[in-house]
């Protein structure tokens, strides 16, 4: 296996079109999984030479554009993002560790793979995601970290990232560059729930790269709340990305996404519908949370995530409603 560097000029004859080639950004997911023998790419293409064009952080007056090769740490610490998109800044700040955030890119972040222990240990045969058709060891195994929303009878693995919840909540678009040029689609269409084919995780085609994310609007009233086993350097047991537009006590627009509990970045649209046009109170928050988890399904060790997810979501809503906005 060889590592090749990809230059902008080489994009025409893109070596990534081979299904077994993998782009390498920060490497913090890819290299780990290669060492574990979970991912066995025939070729690894270093996309960091594209960084000059692909790592810009561009807050505009009415939108935000983030290059896919921007580092998590740079985006998290950006003053305008902290001010106008706290949900983005905090989803990044509360993720991984300082060292990882310095290496990891936004594109790699949204493409990170599940932390399901059975997926990451090839000595377990039964993993439909890694070994299609082999069964799912987690279903009746140790599944405390697993998902309660968006699961299928083939796979219950959690989508582990934080940042994607902020993107999906804010109706972000993802910009995709491939041989045919650049296309743009809602970020919500990037990840695929496991369904019958948990091995297919995204709608990206071989040869396609994420080049940027675009976030419409500004969301100063937004929150990312993350519950986890330790105070830092740990994936979410449950998280909520909440963005509100509140005028005179009435919620004009509401965005809610959930992390740590679902198989994909999870937009809680039922919750949003209940919130819109309402005045916030705790009773509403409770109804909204119940609606968001109405279809949740717990298993042996992870049922607690349903109640936890509701409480995290409720608290995030309360925080977003009461937060002071610096203008």
């Amino acid at each position: 296996m060889a590592v090749q560097a990809l230059s902008a000029a080489a994009a025409a004859n893109n070596p990534l079109t081979k299904a077994t080639a993998q782009p390498l950004a920060g490497g913090t997911t890819l290299i780990d999984l290669m060492k574990l023998d979970v991912m066995r790419p025939a070729a690894v293409i270093d996309i960091n030479p594209l960084a000059r064009g692909w790592s810009a952080i561009e807050p505009g007056s009415d939108a935000l554009r983030l290059g896919a090769l921007a580092k998590m740490s740079d985006v998290a610490a950006h003053a305008e993002i902290e001010r106008n998109y706290p949900v983005i800044a905090n989803s990044l700040k509360l993720a991984a560790s300082a060292q990882l955030r310095n290496m990891a890119t936004l594109g790699g972040n949204v493409m990170q793979r599940t932390r399901c222990s059975y997926f990451r240990d090839v000595s377990y045969e039964n993993c439909n995601k890694r070994n299609p058709g082999s069964g799912c060891a987690a279903m009746d195994g140790v599944n405390r970290m697993h998902a309660v929303l968006g699961t299928s009878d083939r796979c219950i693995a959690t989508y582990p990232g934080d940042f994607a919840q902020a993107l999906i909540a804010l109706d972000a678009m993802v910009e995709i560059t491939g041989q045919a040029g650049t296309r743009s689609m809602p970020f919500a269409q990037l990840h695929k729930p496991p369904g019958d084919a948990p091995d297919i995780e995204t709608t990206l085609q071989p040869g396609e790269l994420i080049s940027a994310f675009a976030v419409p609007g500004r969301w100063p009233r937004s929150v990312y709340l993350k519950a986890r086993d330790r105070q830092s350097y740990e994936f979410a047991l449950s998280s909520a990305a909440v963005a509100l537009d509140v005028q005179d006590g009435t919620i004009r627009d509401a965005r809610v996404a959930l992390g740590g509990v679902a198989t994909v970045p999870w937009r809680a649209r039922e919750a949003e519908a209940l919130l819109k046009g309402q005045k916030f109170d705790d009773g509403l928050a409770q109804r909204v949370a119940d609606a968001a988890f109405a279809d949740a399904r717990g298993r042996r060790h992870n049922s607690f995530k349903i109640a936890l997810g509701k409480r995290v979501m409720t608290r995030a809503l309360q925080q977003a409603v009461t937060m002071e906005i610096r203008s």
Binding site: Y118, D121, G141, V142, M145, R230, Y233
Partner: peptide, 25 residues
């Protein structure tokens, strides 16, 4: 250390899943 009761195997056998305190704790 979590044990898969079905097959008597350790499941969280790595430092990402076997939790030890970090400074913030």
């Amino acid at each position: 250390t979590e044990i898969d009761q079905r097959n008597a195997r350790y499941v969280n056998d790595n430092l990402a899943d076997y939790l030890v305190p970090v400074n913030a704790d």
